[in-house]
Design a protein around this nucleic acid. Structure first.
Lengths: 219, 219
DNA sequence: TGATGTGAAGCGGTTCACAGCC
DNA sequence: GGCTGTGAACCGCTTCACATCA
């Protein structure tokens, strides 16, 4: 085990490994080698070993990894061994969908509040979660120990919302607004940009059709 | 201009540049240098120039880039100069939210159909879009020239759905199910994994609290 | 003069290949 | 024998620095 800086690519893969192990556990598999796991889930065995080795020596040479043991290690590393309180800001369709997202619950995240500035929404229950006034964020965050904020508001309001939640002491934010935001160094911001993802796919499609034209010309 | 393979990192940045240019155009700015753009949007000027140079010489030395001109070039490169037809599979909360997502419309994507296997949903209008039977996907895809599919079904059904849409000739798929999927080489699959994103943030939080403990010990 | 376009250097992540251990 | 853990090689992306040109 070393004390290097772990890249976000690595932490995202750890999350994937955890998901694989959960599935292996469901299939009553108790031990797995990096090679077996790589084959089954289309990963790279050397990378699995290297990623895990950053955090300790979890495997047994000649045998592999204990599924249950590694699961526990990964949950501890990722912090999903303890329940984490999440707030979603923006009670529109996307925010509501996220509040009700079962993937969160499975990973020990609990969305306990939605926030919005729309008076018509405040006080309602959306996706099983109460909508609060965004103005009360700091107060409720403190009261309920909110650790993670998810931004699901239109792009033009996203920076304001981010400023507000970081001011309230939130250190990790997941942003769905299609805009690049600014944040202090001690806060971790991760943006999921659906527009960019689609446009990137669109690039692939138009490249493909160009290639087809080229091939047709060549033929 | 060269004929190298363009990485997905680059195409995602092109999408970001396009968004920046749209904003600059809104502010009636007609010319912009890579340096000015980098400062304003927290990008790297060398990277902007290099990314653009893969596709042509769009700038003027000593002056910069024409905002309008570069916008048009980027839209052409990304394929967003033409309308593209999108289908969303899964008419749950997430699928519905995506069908109604305005970020899509702004980029010239049009979601024309939702698909589901739930008989109770088929025939309904959700998020302004009709829900069809997933069994009819191939037929409707051909009829309406669907080019892009978005998967918003639970993880256990995602691979089946992916198989079905690729069989119908879809070459680009955006997947929201938290599972790693298999696809033929000629199909582009992009997965947006919200669980992984959150767990990665969670890692950052738990690292942070460990560091605090270390610092407290040292003090 | 000032900003682009680009070869070269730098850096970080991935893969290889094997020593070490069960 | 088999699989882990890991230094070294490799590869690709980013950044630098400057020749080039309006």
């Amino acid at each position: 085990m070393k004390f290097e800086k772990i890249s976000e690519l690595t932490t995202c893969r750890l999350s994937v490994y955890l998901r694989c192990l959960n599935e292996l556990a469901k299939d009553n598999i108790t031990t797995v080698s990096s090679e077996t796991m790589a084959k089954r889930y289309h990963l790279n065995s050397a990378q699995i070993r290297k990623d895990l080795a950053y955090f300790g020596e979890f495997g047994v040479r000649g045998v592999g990894y204990s599924v249950e043991g590694l699961r526990n290690h990964l949950m501890k590393i990722l912090g999903t061994d303890k329940k984490q309180i999440v707030a979603v800001i923006g009670a529109g369709r996307l925010g509501t969908a996220l509040a009700d997202y079962h993937g969160f619950t499975q990973s020990n995240f609990e969305v306990i509040a939605l926030f919005d500035s729309d008076k018509n929404l405040i006080g309602q229950i959306k996706g099983g979660t109460e909508v609060f006034d965004i103005k009360d964020f700091a107060e409720i965050a403190e009261r309920d120990n909110i650790e993670l904020a998810v931004i699901a508001v239109p792009a033009e309001f996203a920076q304001d919302v981010l400023n507000r939640v970081t001011k309230a002491g939130i250190k990790a934010v997941l942003n769905f607004a299609p805009i690049s935001l600014c944040v202090a160094d001690d806060v971790k911001l991760k943006t999921v940009d659906v527009t960019t993802a689609l446009e990137s796919l669109s690039y692939f499609l138009s490249q493909n059709s160009h290639t087809e034209i080229e091939l047709r010309k060549a033929a």
